[in-house]
Write a protein that binds this DNA or RNA. Structure first.
Lengths: 101, 101
DNA sequence: CGTGTAAGGAATTCTGACACG
DNA sequence: CGTGTAAGGAATTCTGACACG
């Protein structure tokens, strides 16, 4: 159904290209993943694949780090955002439920 | 100025991923490049990078090949399209020239 | 805590060529 | 003409660890 994952969300970019675009080192990018700030896909053989959206998030993370924010704090913000997303999702399913019940 | 190359046009995808998405073999993809049907970027070390737009074009090429169209013919169509683009571009620069002269 | 680096292995990509047709 | 494949080399990516602070 939701076959049309937009170009922005499709995880198809290797870490080398991400490095080049963001200016961040591979080490940093992998570290932010370890700290659960970013979630690349993996190919069967284990290479990381990022989306343009991931790249945007990496730039935001980099800014915060430069401002002295710790990865732990950054993660909290992400969780908060996701909670909002979840609420939206629940509202949607609520509406759908009502519509058909 | 035109920094905002859209996600669709940015050449950031490796040939392995293109293979996976299109279902075409590396051999085919490289062959279509040799026949000047597709124009990936190259990293400094020589690896090919494709855009989502390239992937779309590859699928179109694959369809035509299956229909028995030869690469030579497919290239003609591409040149024809580019000519139309050029005309559009000339019209644009014509308008701009007028506006400021 | 955040990041650099050397280490060794595994998987990827590249090119030019031989093959079939 | 379009495509598969084996060949050998070069560049990439991966992980776990040591280092500094």
């Amino acid at each position: 159904m939701d076959n049309s994952q937009s170009y922005r969300e499709k995880k198809v970019i290797g870490i080398g290209t991400v490095t080049e675009i963001t200016g961040l080192s591979n080490r940093k990018i992998r570290y932010y993943e370890m700290r659960k700030l970013i979630f690349p896909d993996r190919t069967p053989s284990g290479t990381r694949k990022y989306s343009f959206s991931d790249i945007e998030r990496l730039m935001e993370i980099a800014e915060k780090i430069e401002d002295g924010v710790q990865t732990h704090e950054i993660r909290k913000d992400i969780v908060k955002k996701e909670k909002h997303q979840m609420i939206k999702g629940q509202l949607n399913s609520h509406f759908h439920t009502n519509r058909y019940s």
